[in-house]
Amino acid sequence: MKKSLLFLILPFVLVSCTQKVDVTKIDDINGYWQISKVTDADDHKKEYPINEVYDYFEIKNKIGFHKKVLWQPDGTFLVNDLQETLKVNVENERVQLDFSSKYGNHSEELESISKDEMVLVSKEEVKFYYKKVVINQPK
């Protein structure tokens, strides 16, 4: 009897302990980020210790864009016209980022965000771990 009660209560405890994203921190997404690692649903992990491609996010009032930029040794970036429109949807204390471009649409859940780190999760349960990059623009 005790074991069945434990199996009934345990899922509720685990769900209630999950940390929710603070919606007021959404502006922390703005800026340059590098993927540091990716894990899949089976917990396979790929590390990215060096990455010349940065992800740039710009959001204001829950609408913005995302684009890939290529860092150059002189501190500048190669940028093209390809970018995704980005909309932030908050529902049931979950933050969903909806990306769209002429090439397609996809969504990722914002699992966590801080000034230095961000984790996005795809519907296939692939987790993208990002580190914030501070850019010192050349004078």
Score class of each variant (00 low, 15 high):
Ser107Asp: 04
Pro49Trp: 01
Leu10Cys: 09
Tyr54Lys: 11
Glu108Cys: 09
Lys25Gln: 15
Val126Met: 05
Asp116Tyr: 05
Ile29Thr: 09
Tyr54Ser: 08
Val69Tyr: 00
Val119Glu: 03
Gln96Thr: 09
Val88Ile: 14
Ile135Met: 01
Val126Lys: 12
Gly64Asn: 02
Thr39Glu: 14
Pro11Gly: 00
Ser4Pro: 05
His66Ala: 13
Asp40Pro: 09
Leu97Asn: 03
Ile35Tyr: 10
Arg94Tyr: 02
Phe57Pro: 05
Leu14Ile: 15
Phe65Thr: 03
Ser36Gln: 05
Lys20Asp: 15
Val21Ser: 10
Leu14Glu: 08
His44Cys: 04
His106Thr: 07
Lys115His: 07
Phe12Thr: 10
Ile29Gln: 06
Leu6Gly: 04
Glu91Asp: 12
Gln19Trp: 06
Cys17Lys: 12
Leu70Ser: 09
Ile113His: 09
Gly75Arg: 00
Ile63Ser: 12
Thr76Gly: 01
Ile29Glu: 10
Ser101Gly: 09
Ala41Ser: 14
Asn92Tyr: 05
Gln34Asn: 14
Asp43Val: 12
His106Lys: 10
Trp71Ser: 15
Asn89Trp: 05
Glu111Ile: 11
Met1Leu: 08
Ser16Leu: 14
Ser16Asn: 15
Ser114Met: 02
Asp116Leu: 05
Glu84Ser: 09
Leu78Arg: 11
Asp40Ala: 06
Asp28Pro: 04
Ile135Leu: 03
Phe128Lys: 02
Lys139Ser: 09
Leu86Glu: 01
Ile9Met: 13
Glu47Ile: 05
His44Ile: 02
Val38Phe: 10
Lys123His: 12
Lys67Ala: 00
Val95Phe: 04
Gln96Lys: 11
Leu8Ala: 14
Tyr32Val: 03
Val23Ala: 14
Lys127His: 06
Val134Leu: 11
Arg94Asp: 08
Ile113Phe: 10
Lys67Thr: 07
Asn89Glu: 14
Val119Asn: 01
Val53Asp: 07
Val69Cys: 00
Asn51Arg: 13
Lys3Val: 13
Val79Pro: 05
Lys62Gln: 11
Ala41Tyr: 14
Ser114Glu: 02
Gly31Lys: 00
Ile26Val: 15
Lys67Tyr: 00
Val79Trp: 06
Lys62Cys: 07
Lys46Glu: 13
Val121Thr: 09
Asp98Cys: 07
Val69Leu: 02
Glu93Met: 10
Leu8Asn: 05
Pro11Cys: 01
Glu52Thr: 10
Gln19Lys: 15
Lys60Cys: 06
Ile113Met: 09
Lys60Phe: 12
Tyr48Phe: 15
Val23Lys: 13
Cys17Glu: 13
Thr24Gly: 06
Val95Glu: 04
Val134Pro: 01
Asp22Trp: 08
Pro49Cys: 01
Val79Ser: 06
Val126Ala: 04
Tyr32Arg: 03
Glu124Tyr: 00
Asp55Val: 13
Ser101Asp: 07
Phe7Tyr: 13
Pro138Leu: 01
Asn92Met: 03
Trp71Asn: 08
Val95Lys: 01
Phe57Ser: 07
Asp116Asn: 13
Glu84Val: 05
Leu6Ser: 06
Lys25Arg: 14
Lys37Met: 05
